[in-house]
């Protein structure tokens, strides 16, 4: 199976942050250094399970210049297919694992004159390192953070301690929500960043669009693949003449991998472009965030980790 180059780390501490969230500190062997990273970066973690390797992405919440350790925060998700469950239930201090180098699909805008972060729940994690970076550079920002309650609010203490002036909390238990109305008040030059559940992101992205925000001022981070609205099974036909069936519960990438095809991939959420494959015929339903609109409209390539067929069949250029 395709695997990127990785770093070997050991869990050196585990902190119960809230009822559902644990923070893990990852250390590299003595004498070695972890790479520095930029605000908003994440790593892939590789978990060995009896069923095979589980790859999950988590934002780095430690200081970008700290080369001695990384920190991630993991929320136990009810719908978990295993990733967060393993982190919460099986991982112990002293355990070793492989992680990727830091990657950033959610970088701070360089052009922005002011940054506004909108977070819901565990969506707070990428903003921790972004706020650190902006503070170091002396740039202005504000944080609007929605959570169920103070007890369920990860990093509450850390944020109030370090960024009290910039931060605003909204607890649904107190009937407080972040109004999208806020978007109306940002001055020209502001960039907005959304991270949280799909519905939260969609809601804010739409509000920004309706106001006429240019696309480039609106940034969003997803850790789960986008929810597909029209999922249906389809067939993939290969150069060799073989046909592969993709059912509604699996991604096309997973189907190809299961059939032993050596398709490279990395993010699995349609962000990095690594899994791109050429398509000869068939209607493609693009769900990625990588290809440009023109490239999507050309209908001649697909990112199979998220995208699917609109037609019953895709004819592919691969063997």
């Amino acid at each position: 199976m395709y695997k990127e180059s990785t770093l070997s780390v050991q869990i050196s501490s585990i902190v119960q942050e809230t009822e559902h969230v644990k923070r893990f500190t990852l250390e590299i062997a003595k004498g070695k250094q972890l790479p520095r990273f930029s605000g908003g970066s994440h790593i892939s973690t590789y978990l060995e399970t009896p069923k095979g390797l589980l790859v999950r992405q988590y934002s780095l919440t430690s200081h970008p210049d700290d080369c001695s350790h990384y920190e991630i925060a993991v929320r136990l998700s009810e719908a978990s297919k295993g990733g967060s469950r393993i982190w919460h239930q099986s991982m112990k201090v002293g355990d070793h694992l492989q992680i990727s180098y830091p990657k950033n699909h959610f970088p701070l805008s360089f052009k922005a004159r002011h940054h506004v972060f909108y977070a819901a729940g565990i969506g707070i994690t990428p903003f921790i390192s972004m706020m650190q970076e902006l503070r170091d550079k002396g740039q202005t920002f504000e944080l609007h953070y929605a959570s169920k309650s103070k007890q369920y609010c990860s990093f509450y203490e850390f944020i109030t301690q370090h960024y009290s002036e910039q931060s605003h909390f909204y607890f649904s238990e107190d009937n407080h929500r972040i109004p999208t109305l806020f978007l109306e008040n940002h001055l020209v030059g502001t960039h907005v960043y959304f991270c949280g559940p799909e519905t939260f992101i969609e809601h804010f992205v739409k509000a920004a669009k309706d106001l006429g925000y240019p696309k480039k001022s609106v940034h969003q981070e997803r850790f789960s693949p986008p929810q597909l609205k029209r999922v249906k099974p389809f067939k993939v036909s290969l150069k060799s003449g073989n046909e592969i069936w993709v059912d509604e519960k699996q991604s096309m990438l997973d189907a190809l991998l299961q059939h032993g095809l050596n398709v490279p991939y990395s993010c699995k959420v349609g962000r990095c472009g690594t899994c791109e494959l050429p398509v000869i015929t068939g209607d493609i339903d693009h769900f990625d965030f990588f290809l440009s609109e023109d490239q999507q409209n050309a209908q001649n390539c697909i990112l199979p980790c998220v995208s699917r067929a609109k037609s019953d069949k895709l004819v592919m250029e691969i063997k």
């Binding site: 180059s5 790479p35 830091p102 690594t274």
Partner: peptide
Amino acid sequence: DQRILQFLMRLEAGT
């Protein structure tokens, strides 16, 4: 030029 730019944008540390 567009393809190569996209390739570079997805260049990852460690690789």
